[in-house]
């Protein structure tokens, strides 16, 4: 395994001034907007850094256990850093019928990780998603936010080779 890259994936420095802006200015410090604040934080850091959640807890005066509850209840939140590339395989019903389950097993075996996990070199995170609403062109995979319709095992191999070649 190559050494982890130092650029994107180590515990990031949390920018508290920016965090404050997100919580107070963008969402007015309202407790009801907590889920959307967490989504904004996750978009910024690609996961929810512990420090940011403790800060959120203080500003909103919400116990950290409640924040942890929300962070673990909703599937889109992650408490661990994600890899440099994101590979989503849709496992909605239409995609499932067209064989997306086999594709997930194939990639997972090839990368040596479970769905939801990141490779040890932090290069790629494999995730499944329940339905992207693009059932007509199933099976669908999304690699770094770009949709690939009628995906095949071969297409997935291409992504992995591309990432490994970096």
């Amino acid at each position: 395994m190559p050494e982890p890259e130092a650029t994107c994936c180590q515990e990031p420095e949390v920018d508290f001034v920016e965090l404050d802006r997100i919580i107070r200015d963008e969402f007015g410090g309202r407790r009801e907007a907590m889920i959307m604040m967490m989504q904004t934080i996750q978009r910024r850091y690609r996961y929810l850094p512990e420090q940011a959640l403790y800060y959120l807890s203080q500003v909103l005066d919400v116990p950290i256990t409640k924040i942890y509850e929300v962070a673990t209840f909703y599937a889109s939140f992650s408490l661990v850093p994600k890899g440099k590339h994101l590979l989503h395989v849709c496992t909605g019903t239409a995609c499932h019928l067209k064989g997306s389950g086999g594709m997930v097993r194939h990639v997972a075996a090839k990368l040596g990780i479970e769905p939801g996990a990141t490779t040890p070199d932090m290069k790629i995170t494999l995730e499944t998603v329940n339905c992207l609403g693009a059932c007509a062109v199933s099976p669908v995979v999304v690699f770094d936010d770009k949709y690939y319709p009628q995906a095949t095992v071969g297409k997935l191999n291409e992504f992995i080779e591309k990432v490994n070649a970096e």
Binding site: R30, R31, E32, A33, M34, I35, M38, Q39, K66, E69, V70, F73, Y74, A75, S76, F77, N130
Partner: peptide
């Protein structure tokens, strides 16, 4: 935020309030 159960009315309202 990715929870199927939030399509249920009372769960959705609870989610709107920023809770699970």
């Amino acid at each position: 935020a990715g929870a199927f159960v939030c399509g249920e009315s009372s769960a959705l309202m609870s989610s709107l309030e920023g809770k699970v």
